[in-house]
Design a protein around this nucleic acid. Structure first.
Length: 424
DNA sequence: ATGCTCCTGCGAA
DNA sequence: CTAACGTTCGCAGGAGCAT
């Protein structure tokens, strides 16, 4: 039951390169929101030793020395290209699990095991030709092994030309390969677990694979126990292709600058609640409660720190922007304290259920409900047509002094006609 | 004992 | 010029509480 894991190479950088060939062959880094830290690096940047998550201001010097091109992230562009990549990939298997913006699993059950390497090449060529994005393909019998095979393909450890199929290797070959890979490269093994494994003498993937399963389960968790089983070829994590809607929706941002007043904070919270409500409706869900969250800048250790959150229950589950915004603002008022430099707020929608399944109560007013639904439909339609944020609630503010920094953003090539560069 | 909800920690991309 | 460190999601497991 082979599974493929297809992962885009340096995804955000590759997206930028699709529309700007000058970025080809030169060091390029894409920065997070607020131009904060590196979230994607070209191979040239990786070679310079710049790490994932490194703050921009810490690498600015070396960036200047090597003429690194730094770009603000452009999630509109990346989301659009991701949808195109996923659409192409969906044609290669009846079962696809979209795992993140740049990777998906494909069920390759029933395919001829001998031909999977060639099939992987076909997949790579199709995505490159149709969308312009380079990908690598890892193939194995479990999701954890497929992730690892993809890692090997990317590093050029085994297989050739961006495809690695563990089904083509003998036990002895795989053992040898796994002894060269640190345990921390395995899916599900993060920093904390890597440290603890080291104290137990477990350094490599091979060490982890051959560890005592009972010991792993008792010392860590059943999750890591499953990881070990998956490394041994026993599937424990199902391929999930049913598109189950999210259980919670989070919208939060750090500000480009700090703010102190309730008015500015309210604008941000109203904006985030508005955006969260849009996501909620696109899922076809309703929320039972709203959580609002504020925070000062924890990196400024000499300044007074404050952070707080509050869950505001709704009288009945809703997807109405105005109700969700009101609830979020009520919560904000309750936790706001003056005298702090706030750096971030967030809005979380919780207790999500499918809209069709909500229980109607005595308090339901069908007329109000219909009015709310048609207003939200109009809002969503206008924003789809005119671009997100065209129509919003007044509480979101006009100036948005807290808005994030994006000083290096590329144009929205695929979604905004106005931003296409014109010849002449 | 059992089953909840709430909260925190961890991991991933 | 200065100051500057992301966002969103799921899962597990413990605490606290009620039954």
């Amino acid at each position: 039951m082979p599974i493929a894991l297809v992962d885009c190479n340096n995804f955000y950088v590759s997206c930028e390169r699709v529309f700007n060939p000058k970025l080809e062959g030169v060091p390029v880094v894409v920065l997070s929101n607020n131009d904060g830290v590196a979230v994607a690096r070209s191979n040239e940047v990786k070679a310079l030793g710049i790490k994932m998550g490194e703050p921009w201001f810490k690498m600015e010097k070396i960036a200047k020395q090597h003429s690194i091109i730094a770009l603000s992230s452009n999630y509109t562009l990346y989301g659009d290209l991701s949808a195109r990549v996923m659409s192409v990939l969906s044609t290669f298997s009846p079962k696809q699990e979209i795992y993140s913006i740049d990777e998906c699993f494909l069920d390759l059950s029933g395919f001829d095991p001998q031909s999977l390497m060639a099939y992987g090449q076909t997949i790579r060529q199709a995505v490159k030709r149709n969308v312009g994005i380079p990908v690598c393909v890892g193939i194995a019998d479990t999701k954890t092994l497929a992730k690892l095979a993809n890692h090997c393909a990317k590093k050029g450890f085994a297989g050739r030309d961006g495809v690695c199929d563990f089904g083509r290797g003998t036990e002895a070959q795989l053992s040898k390969l796994f002894s060269r890979i640190p345990a921390g490269d395995v899916w599900g093994v993060g920093r904390k677990i890597t440290e603890k494994l080291l104290t137990m003498g477990i350094k490599t993937v091979e060490d982890l694979r051959t560890a005592n399963p009972e010991r792993i389960r008792s010392q860590f968790s059943i999750v890591l126990g499953r990881t070990v089983q998956e490394l041994n070829g026993t599937p424990c994590i199902e391929l999930d292709d049913d598109g189950t809607p999210r259980q919670q929706i989070m919208v939060s941002r750090s500000f480009g600058t700090t703010v102190t007043g309730l008015a500015d904070l309210s604008e941000s919270v109203a904006s985030f609640a508005t955006r969260a409500a849009e996501k909620l409706r696109s899922d076809g869900s309703v929320a039972a409660s709203v959580c609002v969250y504020v925070r000062t800048n924890p990196f400024k250790e000499d300044e007074p720190q404050y952070q707080h959150s509050l869950i505001v229950p709704l009288s009945q589950p809703t997807d109405d922007t105005t109700r969700l915004v009101s609830a979020a603002l009520v919560g904000l008022k309750a936790i706001y304290r003056s005298g702090y430099q706030y750096k971030k707020t967030g809005v979380m929608l919780m207790g999500l259920q499918a809209k069709g399944t909500i229980q109607t109560t005595l308090f339901d007013d069908p007329v109000d409900q219909a009015r709310s639904d048609s207003l939200m439909n109009v809002m969503d339609a206008i924003n789809r047509k005119m671009g997100q944020g065209s129509l919003t609630v007044a509480a979101s503010g006009i100036n948005q002094r807290w808005a994030m920094r994006r000083e290096r953003k590329s144009p929205n090539y695929t979604t905004e006609w106005d931003e296409l560069p014109m010849a002449g």
